[in-house]
């Protein structure tokens, strides 16, 4: 064998090792959570690298708790409502920002971007007061209201980016036809924006589903909580007696739908992330 082919083979092997390392790095913790969720009792305390048993006891225990099932419902409700609100306000705003040239446009874009950078804790006490005043404390509705602070800015931002990319001719035809801006938006743009809207909606959904700080602060009782808070507050007798099996089963339950969504829509998500450079 010549040194050239040797070098080529070595390169290929190196590349394969690199790929394996990346795959291990990204997938292993999730795999290990699944592995743990199938173990029960004393099995938990022996480290294993392969799935050896399929014991659904942890899943049964978690789903048997009414409050955990309720928190899944709360999360679903809050996430869907948040997405709908962000879409409703975001779509019209994105049309104005993406298609109309007017004074103050970049100022509005700055405000939108600025709000998306807000540290959540900076509005915590102010929001708490507003929520108290609206009598929404310990109510998932308070979360729908407060999540708008992060879903709306990036919805506007990404939809504006997509809206800008559509050709001018489309709109010119509608204007020549005398269509009103609202008709133009819903008849011309919305049908073309479906992919972008799906992307944005999915990102907003994931952001709302994963939110923790507001959910932790604005809810108090088990049956009003969302899933992340429910999981964070699963406790045993002490720090050393955390029911790890149950915890991992709960984690898998709330993560699997997201992972499936992400795998199906991966192309869309990538285009959305790069269009808006949103936070994860």
């Amino acid at each position: 064998m010549s040194s050239r082919t040797l070098k080529k083979i070595a390169g290929k092997i190196g590349f394969a090792i690199l790929l394996a390392a990346i795959l291990l790095f990204t997938v292993f913790p999730f795999y290990y959570a699944i592995l743990t969720s199938f173990k029960s009792g004393s099995e938990l305390f022996t480290v294993e690298y392969w799935i050896s048993s399929f014991d659904f006891a942890n899943y049964a225990a978690v789903l048997g708790q009414g409050s955990f099932v309720k928190s899944i419902w709360n999360s679903v409700l809050v996430s869907f409502a948040t997405v709908l609100i962000a879409m409703g306000f975001g779509l019209t705003a994105a049309y104005a920002l993406g298609r109309v040239q007017f004074r103050g446009r970049s100022a509005v874009l700055m405000i939108v971007l600025g709000v998306s950078m807000f540290p959540q804790v900076a509005v915590l006490s102010g929001l708490f007061e507003v929520i108290r005043a609206m009598n929404l404390y310990n109510d998932p509705l308070a979360l729908i209201f407060s999540y708008t602070i992060f879903t709306l800015p990036f919805t506007v931002w990404i939809l504006t980016t997509f809206m800008r990319q559509l050709p001018k001719e489309l709109e010119e035809a509608a204007i020549v036809d005398g269509a009103s801006p609202l008709t133009t938006l819903f008849r011309v743009f919305v049908p073309l924006m479906w992919p972008a809207m799906a992307t944005t909606g999915l990102l907003a959904f994931i952001a709302a589903w994963n939110e923790f700080l507001f959910a932790l602060t604005f809810t108090l009782t088990d049956d009003q909580r969302t899933v992340p808070v429910a999981i964070a507050l699963i406790t045993g007798g002490s720090q050393h007696e955390l029911p790890w099996g149950n915890l991992m089963a709960a984690s898998v339950i709330v993560t699997v739908p997201l992972v499936v969504l992400v795998l199906i829509f991966q192309r869309r998500i990538v285009s959305g992330l790069t269009a808006g450079a949103v936070k994860g």
Binding site: T26, P29, V229, M248, V262
Partner: peptide
């Protein structure tokens, strides 16, 4: 590429708990 998206999709709380378990001092 799809696999690399998995950590991104997992809620921060869940990933903190998953790692908390992997980093457990005894087990």
């Amino acid at each position: 590429r799809a696999a690399t998206l998995i950590p991104w999709a997992i809620p921060t709380i869940v990933s903190a708990k998953m790692w908390g378990w992997m980093l457990h001092d005894q087990f």
